[in-house]
Design a protein around this nucleic acid. Structure first.
Lengths: 258, 258
DNA sequence: AAGTGGTCTAGACCACATC
DNA sequence: ATGTGGTCTAGACCACTTG
């Protein structure tokens, strides 16, 4: 009873340990939607029996998926598909006055427009050149002070529910973006069924254009940190492309090497 | 035969799984110098017997220490105390012309002085206020172009072997720093027996002073990225404090969230 | 051939969460 | 009381490295 035979349920992957092959198989089942984000997988015993492996092997596979951020396990409750990333705010890259302890930064949508995506955004989102997308401009404030300016690009096939409706005047819009919550990812999930599961932040440096500087209350040409984010869902599709700018002097980040 | 009894070798740690307590015990043995960096630990079977646990439990403990970067395991060879971090160059934060493929950046020591450490350095290195330390100023170049300027502070009790000797003229110094290798950490290990095992890099932005700008071939007041590093050894002692500056426009870094 | 770490199994018992 | 994941054990066999 070794890695050679293949009792049931696991296709033989050459050069791959059984637990690794099993993890890949389980990942497939998650991506295909067999278990939705937030819901529980079957118990260890059931999954092990279903795939014809020992409990230890099944647990090893699940540990891999936990490391990869696909699932999370809660002692006594079960194993769940992760419903989204947390603590991902780009504010973590900046040191601003914290205001009152535990106070969330405010959020103000400056604009909501459907327009042709620039090359960068189109490439990231997998759009054809010149194709339109939904763009949000958003300001984040702490104690009423503007600190971050965001440009957010969203593909219309997923986020049509958030697009402005042409027949309704902005002022009477039931979907008025000034009512949107400060945390967008849970909002994406509840409104559009889009679950952000992974994000890659690229950090660079630049200077503010005149309009950007106006929004942030700084001078044109002021140095800024530029955080470019690609956010992807379970299947690996990029569902959001975002550029965040903030005062370079407030930027700070810590990396540990071992 | 459960987590309750304590057969031998492992002190009972309340609220701690046996494998976790075992990992802590093994870490102690490493830190105390029982096995030196680069050398091998006893085989699994021997360690398990010595601590009176099953093989699986011992392996679980070793996995923990691998995650923590203390040891590394090589299939078929053994388990080794890590001799130092690799790929830790602060150059990884910058996008400079790579020069010829695979070419290492050059390194030029600009100065080597023993002088009173500033407050930041003294605090990091655990020195008394006003105590002296060894300071290196170092320039890193790619294709002959200066790109990074480093200020490195080292405690004299560990790095006396690198300090300038007062009786010898600099030109005739056998330890002439222009012969030092580009990679300092292996040099620390071979010359001073200091093994850097962990490093924390803090990233921020600033502007160059006139002298700094001269070294880098930029204008005074030019924006720069500032990387402040605390490097520590096995026992957690800070053995190097370093500040690196480079053109902010060449800075880039990528962070993945899950 | 001998020694090392890596994988897999089968079963027992513990700890947490829920009803 | 029941179901869930977490820990621990004991033993077998596989894969890599070295002499």
């Amino acid at each position: 009873m070794q890695q050679t035979s293949d009792p049931a349920g696991v296709v033989d992957h050459p050069g791959l340990a059984r637990y690794a092959a099993l993890a890949a198989a389980l990942r497939q089942r998650v991506v295909r939607g067999e278990w939705l984000p937030g819901s529980a997988l079957p118990a260890e015993q059931a999954l092990a029996a279903e795939h014809g492996v020992a409990l230890g092997t099944l647990r090893r596979a699940l540990e891999l998926l936990v490391e990869q951020g696909l699932i999370e396990r809660i002692h006594g409750k079960g194993t769940f598909v992760r419903s989204g990333i947390a603590g991902a705010s780009t504010l973590r890259f900046f040191r601003f006055g914290e205001g009152v302890a535990g106070q969330l930064p405010a959020s103000r949508i400056l604009s909501r427009t459907v327009l042709a995506a620039p090359a960068d955004a189109a490439r990231a989102l997998g759009l054809a050149p010149g194709e339109t997308a939904l763009r949000l401009q958003r300001l984040r404030l702490i104690d009423g002070e503007p600190c971050l300016l965001e440009h957010i690009w969203l593909p219309l096939d997923l986020f049509d529910a958030l697009a402005p409706r042409e027949d309704a005047p902005a002022a009477a819009d039931a979907d008025a973006p000034h009512d949107w919550p400060a945390l967008l990812y849970p909002f994406y999930a509840s409104r559009c069924g889009v679950h952000v599961q992974r994000a890659v932040d690229d950090i660079g440096f630049g200077v503010l254009t005149a309009p950007q500087a106006r929004s942030l209350g700084l001078a044109a040409g002021h140095p800024c940190a530029v955080v470019t984010r690609r956010a992807t869902d379970l299947a690996g599709r990029c569902v959001e492309w975002r550029v965040t700018r903030g005062d370079a002097h407030a930027f700070h980040y810590s990396v540990t090497l071992t």
